[in-house]
Amino acid sequence: MEDNQIFRIALITAIIGLAGMTLLSDKVMPHKININEISKSNIGETVVIEGHVRTIESHGNKLYILSVIDNNGVMNVIIKDNLINEFKRNGQSPQIYVNRYVRISGKVIDYKGSIELELTDVKSINILI
């Protein structure tokens, strides 16, 4: 095979790959959503919200509940014990997010009829302001 043919094959493959990534990116990456738009139809999905952390309730070393508010609503974000331990190993505490504006990626869950967001990774919460 000549260099010119190899170059053409590589170029075509790259173009097809980039087109595929562009078309499928919204299916792979969690989408940002306003809190009031999250409903039971989103249960099991991973979504991204941005908002102000008003309060954090600590339930021992088992659970933290962050109350996050955006311009449209309020949502509880759950941090379970396995992530609390990971925060501690990293020398952090979820308390650092109180009164901060954050971006959170998490899984939509139903807890006793209430829609909540469960943090699935310590890297899924970032302070924006």
Score class of each variant (00 low, 15 high):
T22L: 10
K27G: 07
G51D: 02
R54E: 11
M75P: 00
N42E: 12
Y101L: 11
I96C: 00
L11R: 12
Q92C: 09
N71Q: 09
D121W: 03
R100H: 04
E50P: 04
N99E: 12
N99H: 11
N99W: 08
G20Y: 08
G17W: 02
H52Q: 12
I15P: 01
I16F: 10
Q5D: 08
K80C: 07
G17N: 08
V53R: 00
A10L: 14
I129K: 15
G60M: 05
E2G: 14
N85T: 15
D81W: 10
I104G: 00
D121V: 05
M1K: 12
H52S: 11
G73I: 09
Q92E: 13
S67N: 09
M21R: 08
Q95L: 13
S67T: 13
G17T: 09
S39Y: 12
L24I: 12
I35L: 02
D70T: 10
R89P: 03
G91T: 02
K27C: 07
Q95P: 01
P30Q: 05
I56M: 04
V98D: 03
I16Y: 05
N71K: 11
H52G: 07
H31W: 09
I78E: 02
D70Q: 12
M21H: 06
V28Q: 06
G73Y: 05
K27W: 06
K62R: 15
T120L: 10
V47A: 01
M1C: 10
K88Y: 13
T120E: 13
V68G: 02
V28P: 03
G113W: 02
R100C: 01
D121T: 04
A14S: 05
V48P: 00
I96M: 03
K32Y: 10
L23Q: 10
Q5R: 14
Y111W: 07
N82I: 09
Y101A: 08
I49R: 03
H59L: 11
I35G: 03
K107Y: 05
L83T: 03
Q92P: 07
S25T: 10
G20V: 08
M29K: 13
N85P: 04
I115Y: 01
N99P: 07
G44Q: 03
P94E: 02
K107L: 10
K112D: 01
K123Y: 12
K80E: 12
I33E: 02
M75I: 15
I129P: 06
I49M: 05
I129D: 14
G73R: 07
I78N: 05
V47G: 00
Y97P: 00
V108T: 03
S25I: 13
K80M: 14
I109R: 03
S39Q: 11
L63R: 09
G44E: 04
S114W: 05
L83A: 04
M75C: 05
D3Q: 15
D121L: 04
V47D: 00
T22H: 12
N42P: 04
I78K: 04
K62Q: 14
M1G: 10
K123F: 13
M29A: 08
I49L: 06
I49P: 01
Y97N: 02
I84T: 05
E118Y: 03
V48D: 00
Q92W: 15
G51I: 07
A19K: 11
L18F: 12
S93P: 03
I6E: 04
V122D: 01
S114F: 08
G106M: 01
I79F: 01
E86T: 14
G17I: 08
T46E: 05
I127L: 06
V122I: 15
